[in-house]
């Protein structure tokens, strides 16, 4: 059954030429007749589906539209045209720790981050010590985040984000977090989550990871699908390019 369905999705950014970032400039430019609107097409006619317990990787150079596509899937960016349908809960692992606040304690941040992801806070509260322990920051959970090292922040974010199983997992380059020890640990947990039946969309430049983890792959170029198919085939073609 298709958990993610994307049909003829187009995303167009409307950009003011000369980037009138202020009302003053816009006013001046429109008087001079210089304010021109240009449509920048970020995604062109994208269609695909992802089934339950299927892992799909998205490949492509910087600026090919990978992040835009993930934003559309996450429901953050509404497509200009086309349909995006996702059934079930989404765990967006796009930028870990989005919404973390320096002045709040570790425990408060775990709660807040979970609330942003729409989780049940009662169970999160009960789980908080375990989340801190898994991240290896148990002793720090009562202190403000600004006293954490950046590695500790990343570990806590990863631990929180992966604490609950979601039906849809959107992963953007978060396979490697922290030091070597934690990386093995996080990789193992990530693989566990991926293999546990969720529909996964994965953006990565790590072609070995894509080969081993993904069933299918989509190659994006300049906002359109250049190739879609079995992961190993697409990676071969992408690497030959």
């Amino acid at each position: 059954m298709a958990v993610i369905e994307v049909k003829n999705v187009n995303v167009t950014y409307r950009v003011l030429m000369k980037k009138s970032g202020s009302l003053k400039e816009l006013f001046r430019d429109s008087i001079k007749g210089k304010a021109r609107v240009v449509d920048y097409v970020a995604l062109k006619d994208i269609s695909f589906t992802v089934d339950e317990s299927e892992v799909v990787a998205i490949l492509g150079r910087n600026g090919a539209g990978k992040s835009t596509l993930l934003k559309v899937l996450a429901g953050v960016l509404p497509p200009t045209k086309g349909v995006r349908k996702v059934t079930g809960s989404i765990a967006p692992m796009i930028e870990l720790g989005a919404g973390f606040h320096q002045e709040m304690t570790g425990a408060e941040n775990v709660l807040f981050y979970s609330a942003l992801m729409g989780r049940n806070l009662k169970s999160v509260k009960a789980r908080t010590p375990a989340i801190g322990e898994w991240a290896g920051v148990s002793d720090h959970m009562g202190f403000p985040l600004r006293t954490f090292s950046s590695g500790m922040v990343a570990r806590l974010a990863f631990s929180t984000a992966t604490d609950e199983q979601a039906e849809v997992l959107l992963v953007d380059e978060v396979l490697s977090v922290g030091d070597a020890d934690f990386q093995t640990k996080s990789k193992a947990r990530m693989e566990e989550l991926i293999k546990s039946g969720a529909a996964v969309v994965l953006v990565s430049h790590d072609m070995t990871a894509v080969r081993t983890l993904a069933d299918r792959a989509i190659w994006l170029e300049n906002g359109h699908v250049k190739m879609i198919g079995k992961a190993s085939d697409v990676v071969d073609a992408y690497e030959a390019n």
Partner: peptide
Amino acid sequence: SNGGVLTKIYV
């Protein structure tokens, strides 16, 4: 000011 969150997680 919460743009960082709003472009990553649907809220």
